[in-house]
């Protein structure tokens, strides 16, 4: 049995590691200083796809990522780990999209890869933390969804059983295929890059990236068609221009404020008996405790 799996992944700024050098003197974030990484929960999703492929060798994994040209890194990172093919959905006209407009474009790209059995993606991306694109894509496609998945317990030709990780417990559900599954960060961690695959796909490039390279490279590239990462734009996907980008986004950003760490008037204490005893006394006297 072989399944057709589509993985949705996103390149994100590493918002979890906003180190000292990423903070400006005024306390705001310097986005340029953040590195672009594979969205962590999308790696959990990729691992789920690879686990299915380990079990059913004929499984085919296609990865879709949407973003600027440099997001091709996500496809290379995924090729090194064992996907079969990747597409980069990229078009300036998609810029400024909210989750609804994004999910519309992704659903059009999924249809391009039809038929499929399972779509896997991370629960949410760390730049927006919305967890909306997965379910919205499932709705556009009119298929079932399982969010917050932690473990795929069994699969057969027509159904899948999944354990979900909820805030205060678990739920095990069985769904018909096709289904879209969003994977929680508590699921298995993604395997490392495979050295052989890394050698094989190191020079995989999109057409946009190829334009910057010399002719020698082009010739060796032509001999290895698997190195080509296909790009898909608005016209390739047949998207309605009214439904993409800023125009297709019902939510608008009214304004943005940077969070600035403000120093409170804080008292500095040590671990000495005097300081700690004094503090406890103050807390009891002010009835904060006791």
């Amino acid at each position: 049995m072989g399944l057709k799996i589509i993985v949705l992944a996103k390149q994100v700024p590493d918002t979890r590691n906003v180190g000292k050098n990423a903070m400006r003197a005024d306390g705001t974030v310097n986005r340029g200083a953040l590195s672009a990484i594979y969205n962590p929960e999308d790696l959990n999703a990729l691992e789920q796809a690879l686990l299915i492929k380990d079990k059913f060798k004929d499984t085919e994994i296609t990865l879709l990522t949407m973003g600027p040209p440099r997001a091709a890194d996500i496809i290379r990172e995924s090729l090194y780990r064992g996907i079969d093919k990747g597409f980069l959905i990229t078009d300036r006209r998609f810029a400024g999209a909210d989750t609804l407009a994004t999910s519309y474009v992704i659903s059009k790209a999924v249809l391009k890869c039809s038929p499929f059995d399972i779509i896997l993606s991370g629960r949410q991306a760390i730049d927006g933390d919305t967890a909306q694109v997965g379910p919205q894509t499932a709705e556009h496609l009119g298929i079932a969804q399982i969010t917050y998945a932690e473990e795929i317990q069994s699969i057969d030709k027509s159904s899948i059983q999944v354990k979900r990780r909820l805030e205060r417990g678990i739920e095990v559900v069985k769904s018909k295929l096709p289904v879209l599954i969003t994977v929680h960060g508590s699921a298995s961690k993604c395997r490392p890059k495979n050295a052989k695959l890394l050698m094989k796909y190191k020079y995989a490039k999109t057409n946009t990236e190829l334009q910057a390279l010399n002719e020698d490279y082009m010739n060796s590239f032509k001999a290895k068609p698997y190195l080509n990462i296909e790009e898909l734009n608005l016209d390739d996907l047949g998207c309605d221009i009214e439904r993409v980008g800023l125009k297709g986004s019902p939510t608008k950003v009214k304004n943005i404020e940077n969070v600035v760490f403000k120093s409170k008037d804080s008292k500095r204490l040590t671990a000495s008996n005097r300081d700690i005893k004094g503090l406890i006394k103050t807390l009891i006297e002010s009835r904060v405790v006791g």
């Binding site: 918002t15 705001t28 974030v29 927006g128 608008k252 950003v253 009214k254 304004n255 969070v259």
Partner: peptide, 20 residues
């Protein structure tokens, strides 16, 4: 006005849905 932290909590965004 739908106010939420974004970008890992480093910004606070105010979002509106004017037309839908």
């Amino acid at each position: 006005y739908q106010i939420r932290p974004a970008f890992g909590g480093n910004i606070i965004a105010t979002i509106v849905n004017p037309d839908t």
